[in-house]
Structures are given as structure tokens and as C-alpha cells.
Design a protein around this nucleic acid. Structure first.
Lengths: 210, 210
DNA sequence: TCAATTCCTGACCATATGGTCAAGGCAAAG
DNA sequence: CTTTGCCTTGACCATATGGTCAGGAATTGA
């Protein structure tokens, strides 16, 4: 039994390969769902034999778990802009921008997350109950403070958060529908700006800060 | 080869049984996704042998197709309230109410629909390109007219529609998350009213009609 | 150069799943 | 009552899939 640590070179290469696999897996899980995804598909997408895939990730569930957790991290960090803000106009505006950017850059991840939650969150239920719950409570309190200070209209903070999540993630989760309704083409740079501005305009005016 | 029509009694019983199966299938597809759903699970849920299930629906895809199309119908009919309205306050307000009610009454169907679109709409792509596209164009034109008539703030109608879809369907598609953040309990009657009102308040004020 | 360790892979296995089928049950028309 | 045709079902099949494994290839440290 050896306790030798991997050499830095090996360790880095391994991390790199894991990342490559995770990226392929994210795409396959997003496009086919957990049930529809196969290890063979993921292996093909990553360009390696299935057996090799199993060397890095023992089971399909392990791989899936990693994908979902990575998304969750990104998701949570989008909130950083929220806290630093002096008021709702800046905080919520920046949050919308950040989440829209995530929808644009990580559409696959967003779908995996949505799928996971829709199916009852079998692998991240504990995260929902702890981390997400705490995060939400914090944000609700912050928004309530803004309301109490007269900085925005009195809106139920929890439902406002849901609206923010829903509207921004919609551009990732339903991007196929949006593309279809956009003559089959992805949103252009200009159209993404328009989308961001539209969402921000309605929400910010909706909470009385614009 | 017989061309005898089914007796009314038989025909009705068959329709009833099909409906029962469709209901079970909707639930299973929603909870497990197309790939994760099995004919055995659906049969168990409907309380009949798998072979009997195959008598009514030849293949899993047939069954799925029927489920998705049924949802789509409901989805489209929610728009009826939209058209009759004299202006945005009534039309969009009623539309939000209608779609929130659908999220409440048909959470399974909404999830199946979301899943279908997220996975690239393999079975209803043609509907998206024809029916939904036309429907959307009509609604966009109507909203634009309201804007031109000065009845509401100038908001990109298409993105406004996306916001309406996103916010209302969120309560169905992510109901597990919402329940988890609600101390593990489903929204009460009162909380549903609060949700509806919150969404309407932000959106309607956001488009300048409240 | 030479172990030691990590990495890679084709072949293989057990199981689950969509779908089939033949035989029997049952309602209703004649 | 009998026949006709729909309905029901246990048993069965072919295939796909998650996962294993033994042995070989690379890489690393001494």
C-alpha cells in the first residue's frame, strides 16, 4: 500500500483530463438527461474508451454528481455581486447581468441543474436544504432591508428572487425554443444585450428603482 | 378484415383507459425524464401489466408523444384570455393568472414540456416552428400595438413574453426547490395567491401599467 | 537501467429494458 | 348459445448499458 503523493506534473495532467471529461459529460447530461445519457456517449464525446472513463470516474452517478456540484458552485458565486452593492438598482441589476452571462456561457450546466431539480434533486437535496436555504435567507433579509429603508417598492423578496432565477435561467434552459423562435439562429451579441436590458428594465421598474 | 366501428360503450371505455395511462405516464416522465422512465414504471403507476400498456400505446415514444402534445394544447389555450383583453393590464394580468394556475394544476405536464424543450425538442420541433412561432408572432404584434397606442411602456415584446413564460412556469418546473425553501412544504393557498400577486405586481409595474 | 506506479484498453459479464407473441378471457352481436 | 373480435397477460427475446478485469503501455524516481 503506497501513500506516495502524485507528482505535480501527473497531478496536473490528471486534473486537466478530469476537467475535459467533466465538460463532455456536462454536455451529454444536458442534452440527454441523466437517464438518457450513456457512459459510451460521454466517452465518445470526450474521445476516449469507455473503460478509461471508468478509470477516472467509477460510476455514472459519481460523474453526474461532480457535474452538478460544479454548476452549483458557479451558480452560488454569481451572488457575489449582489452583496457588495449599495442598493437594489446596482445589486439586482448586477445580479441579472451575472446570471444572464452564466446562461450564455454555461447553458449546458444550467440545464443539468434544472433537470436535477425538476426530478426532485436526488443528488443535491442536502445542498438545497443547507447551502441554498441559507443563501436565500440572507438575500431575502438584504432585500427586506432595502424595502424597509425605502430604497425599493415593497415586493415579496422570496418571489422576487424566484423571478430573477426564472427569467435569467430561461435563456439557458429554453435556449432551443428561443433559437427556434429566432429563425433558428442563436441570439447575436446585440440580441443578448437586448435581452439583458429588457429583463433589467422590467424588473428594475417593477421594483420601483427605475 | 373488419371495418366495424367500436361500440360507443367500448370506445368510451377505451378513451377512459387511455386517459388513465396518459396521466400515469405524465407523472413518470416528469419525475424521471424520458430516458429514466420505463414502461414498467408507467405500467405499475397505472396499475396494469406492461404488455397491456403496449396494447394501448405501441411504443414508449408514442406514449411520450401523446403526453407532450396534450400539454402543448393546454399551454396554448392559456392564451385565450390574452386576446379578449382591452389592454395590457387586463390581458397580461389574466395571462399570468392563467399560467400560474396551469403551473399549479399541471406541474407534471409542465416539467415534461420543459424537459422536451431542454433536450432539443426531438418530438415537437415542428410544433415549435409552426404553431408556437405563429402564436408568438401574433402576441408580439398585439403587445407592440399596445405600446404604440401608449398603453404600456416600450418593452421588447418578445423578451416580455419570455419573462412571462419563465416566471410562471418556474413554479411548476422548480416546485421541488420552492418547496424545499418553504420548509419542505407545498405552497399553501395563501402562498399561491402571494406568488401570483408578486409576479403580477412586478411585471405590471415593470411595463408601466400599475 | 530497473522497478514501481499510474494509466490505458479490448474483451467480457450481469442486468435491465423495450418490445413481441401466443393463448386465453370476455363482452356483445346474431 | 355461439361466434366474432377486442382485451388481457405471463413468458419470452434481442439488445443496450453500467460496470469489471486482466494484462499491457507509459511514466517516474532511484
Amino acid at each position: 500500500m503506497s501513500v506516495t503523493a502524485l507528482s505535480p506534473r501527473r497531478s496536473s495532467q490528471r486534473a486537466q483530463k478530469e476537467q475535459h471529461i467533466l465538460s463532455a459529460a456536462e454536455k451529454v447530461f444536458a442534452e440527454a438527461g441523466f437517464g438518457g445519457a450513456t457512459m459510451q456517449l460521454i466517452a465518445d464525446m470526450a474521445g476516449l474508451p469507455k473503460a478509461n472513463l471508468h478509470y477516472y470516474f467509477a460510476t455514472k452517478e459519481d460523474l453526474y454528481r461532480r457535474v452538478v456540484r460544479d454548476i452549483f458552485e458557479i451558480w452560488l458565486h454569481a451572488a457575489d455581486v449582489f452583496d457588495a452593492a449599495p442598493g437594489p438598482a446596482e445589486g439586482i441589476g448586477a445580479y441579472i447581468d451575472a446570471k444572464m452571462e452564466i446562461s450564455r456561457r454555461h447553458p449546458h450546466g444550467s440545464k443539468v441543474w434544472a433537470s436535477e431539480v425538476m426530478h426532485g434533486a436526488p443528488v443535491i437535496q442536502d445542498y438545497l436544504e443547507t447551502t441554498l436555504n441559507d443563501w436565500t435567507d440572507g438575500r431575502v433579509a438584504l432585500i427586506q432591508r432595502w424595502i424597509d429603508e425605502g430604497k425599493m417598492a415593497p415586493v415579496n423578496p422570496r418571489h422576487l428572487l424566484y423571478m430573477l432565477w426564472a427569467t435569467t435561467q430561461h435563456y439557458a434552459d429554453f435556449n432551443h425554443q428561443i433559437e427556434t423562435l429566432n429563425h433558428g439562429k442563436p441570439l447575436s451579441e446585440r440580441q443578448w444585450r437586448e435581452a439583458k436590458n429588457s429583463v433589467k428594465a422590467v424588473i428594475l421598474r417593477g421594483i420601483g428603482v427605475a
